[in-house]
Design a protein around this nucleic acid. Structure first.
Length: 633
RNA sequence: GCCGAUGUAGCUCAAAGGUAGAGCAAUUGAUUUGUAAUCAAUAGGUUGGGGGUUCAAUUCCCUUCAUCGGCUCCA
């Protein structure tokens, strides 16, 4: 007798071993139709899997992450089959499902062209029409090696080497195509309804740039054409809200060839937004007990030797410059300067924690291929601070910091965050017990605050563990903003001390932290998040004044004066164009409010307000208009 | 840095081995307009840079720079 716990919690008993699919059909025929695989005791298996003992069972559909993963993974196999049929000499590497779709890496001399992709897509559709079953075979390692060496799939053999001798290895076969794979898979290729190959790229074998560069094809698939069309539409919309496009359209910033790649020119409107972000940032930091500092952009080589940057960070630093025979470097980080400020005088434990904050512009070498709009640049401004505290203060400082960071991000409208805790890497400085203590402190704070987070095992900096908070861009790519990092390295190197209650010198703890991360990246994410429709308090131009005819220019000027007096940022469209034209222009430049003034308004001493994307709010007197505006601030 | 694609007017895009064209934006003039484009005229480009092939290159080839999509790395 086998007891099966069904998705709704009920239990059904079977006399004999039974296939998952059968259970699904008995439970809910509609679900059985839609289920892509089975989840037996929290392990994903084929829907054809036979259950021979008591089990808890679930049936993931495409609506679930597990279902999508299986669906896309099977599509990756299908694509590989098509590629092998069209280009038989191609060797297979790996082909997993990813967050949005799947890819497969191939070893082939030639690159895949757009025409190749089309051919592959056509071939995939043929194979879909044949509804080829995905057939699972379990093998010993020796058998697997035999099969894949016969096929000369050297990458698969390399993968096999890493699998322990006694482990059961599985392969999946559909039609004439066989692949080393853990599974599970769909029942057959006919389950895949709508496919699209999206792009090609290069990718190193096993992600290591010392290895051969393979040819990767990315694609996606869906159970219906409609879902595919929706997804392509989403990609299209994402393009519209790309910060690089918005930056150009709204004249916020540019990156100029002659100035240099990765170096940002902030145009007046972008600079206004940045100013507003920074002003808010400063205000908040002062409220939280931070002290503002300013530090130079370059420092002597000896400073960077003391800090250790010339040892461990040299690859990201620009080459030295010579000043009267002395070597100087442009700063990739602000910490040595902040520490120098701390070290400029003696500190008592009573002064701690000391929190030194600076919007510090740093320059880091980034390889040309990684630059990306404002998200990855070579010169950027960190909203940096260093918290120097006693070991006892560490917990409460970390906790305050997490709360503060989330508050700040929420103030700009962000609601969803990805939080990571990165732990001790192999190469690192500091004692293990310090690491454990600091890591535990970070984890404890996150848990105390009830925040969900992922642990990035060994992902810490070499000088300490850290918490990172990431925000997603328009395409769902996550970008790091907040980082809270312990530092066991620099307090030692700079011999930082404070005088304790016992009147002897002690080594303080130091936390590096950036809440927004970099102003450039944060600004970009902010733009994408709001699709360029910045909240009123951040909009570079808040109100555009639109006189309907020249006759109202004088009256409109008076209104403008009063709005400016009230602290609003205004623009005036005095062109001799029709109102509709000016409204269109204002809508396109995403100005939050329009103040439209014709002869009626002037006669009644009123203004007409129109809100961006909302429309006409009607005529009212100026006081009313101002109170509406104030409410939106 | 590596793999691939791209680079034409401020923006979006055409064309083609015989020295480039449109729409929008800009400028000027006319128009004085009631909630997403009034009309006309003008101006704007050594087709990213350098080199080569050719009688002729913006087009073909090489090289270099930059951008885009990834890999790798990170704020």
């Amino acid at each position: 007798m086998i007891k099966v716990t069904l998705p709704d919690g009920s239990i059904r008993e079977y006399e004999k071993p039974v296939k998952a699919l059968q259970i699904a059909q008995d439970f809910d025929p509609e679900l059985a139709e839609k289920s892509l695989c089975a989840e037996v005791n929290d392990k994903l298996v084929d829907i054809t899997y036979t259950i021979d003992e008591d089990a808890k069972i679930n049936f993931p559909t495409f609506e679930t992450d597990e279902g999508k993963e299986v669906y896309w993974h099977s599509t990756a196999h299908l694509m590989a089959q098509a590629v092998k049929q069209l280009f038989p000499s191609t060797k297979l590497a790996i082909g997993p499902a990813i967050e949005q779709g799947f890819y497969y890496d191939f070893d082939r001399e030639e690159s895949f062209t757009d025409e190749d992709l089309q051919k592959i897509e056509m071939k995939m559709k043929e194979l879909i029409a044949q509804s080829l079953p995905y057939h699972r075979t379990e093998l010993s390692k020796a058998e697997a090696i035999e099969i894949f060496s016969e096929m000369n799939e050297t990458y698969k053999l390399e993968l096999l080497e890493d699998i322990p001798e006694d482990e059961i290895i599985s392969s999946y076969k559909q039609g004439d195509f066989i692949d080393l794979c853990r599974g599970p898979h769909l029942t057959d290729t006919g389950r895949i309804k709508a496919i699209k190959l999206l792009r090609t790229s290069g990718a190193y074998w096993r992600g290591d740039e010392k290895n051969k560069m393979l040819k990767r094809i990315y694609g996606i698939s869906f159970p219906t054409e409609k879902e595919l069309a929706d997804y392509l539409q989403f990609l299209n919309e994402a393009m519209q809200r790309d910060h690089r496009k918005l930056g150009k359209d709204l004249d916020l910033f540019s990156i100029n060839d002659e100035v240099g790649p990765g170096l940002v020119l902030w145009h007046p409107k972008g600079a206004m937004v940045r100013h507003l972000i920074e002003a808010y940032w400063k205000e908040q930091h002062l409220k939280k007990g931070y002290q503002l500092v300013y530090t130079p952009h370059i420092g002597r080589a000896s400073l960077w030797e003391t800090s250790g940057h010339l040892g461990f960070y040299k690859e990201n630093m620009y080459s030295k410059m010579d000043i009267e025979g002395q070597d100087y470097y442009i700063k990739p980080m602000n910490c040595p300067f902040h520490i120098s400020i701390y070290n400029s005088s003696l500190h008592s434990y009573r002064e701690l924690p000391i929190r030194l904050a600076e919007l510090g512009t740093v320059y880091r070498y980034e390889r040309s291929g990684v630059l990306h709009g404002l998200m990855r640049v070579r010169g950027f401004t960190q909203d940096d601070a260093h918290i120097i505290c006693t070991p006892e203060q560490m917990d409460s400082e970390v906790e305050k910091l997490i709360v503060f960071s989330l508050e700040m991000l929420k103030a700009f409208g962000f609601k969803e965050f990805l939080i990571y805790l990165s732990t001790q890497p192999e190469d690192c400085v500091g004692k293990k017990e310090d690491w454990d203590k600091a890591t535990a402190s970070l984890a404890a704070s996150l848990e105390k605050l009830g925040l969900e987070y992922k642990v990035d095992e060994g992902g810490g900096a070499f000088y300490g563990p850290k918490i990172d908070i990431k925000i997603k861009d328009a395409l769902g790519r996550a970008w790091q903003c907040t980082t809270i990092q312990f530092d066991f390295n620099e307090p030692e190197r700079f011999d930082m001390t404070y005088i304790g209650a016992d009147n002897t010198a002690h080594r303080p703890y130091m936390i590096h932290r950036a809440v927004l991360g970099s102003v450039e990246r944060f600004f970009a994410t902010l733009l994408e998040y709001h699709s360029g429709n910045l909240p009123l308090w951040l909009a570079p131009v808040q109100i555009i004044l639109i006189p309907i005819t020249d006759a109202q220019i004088e009256y409109t000027r008076k209104i403008e004066e009063q709005l400016l007096e009230q602290g609003f940022r205004c623009e005036f469209d005095a062109r001799s164009e029709k109102m509709g034209y000016k409204i269109r222009a204002a809508e396109k430049s995403k100005i939050p409010f329009m103040c439209i003034i014709g002869k009626n308004e002037e006669a009644n001493n009123q203004v007409t307000l129109r809100q961006h994307t909302v429309g006409d709010l009607g005529a009212m007197n100026l006081e009313e208009a101002i109170s509406i505006l104030r409410q939106k601030l």
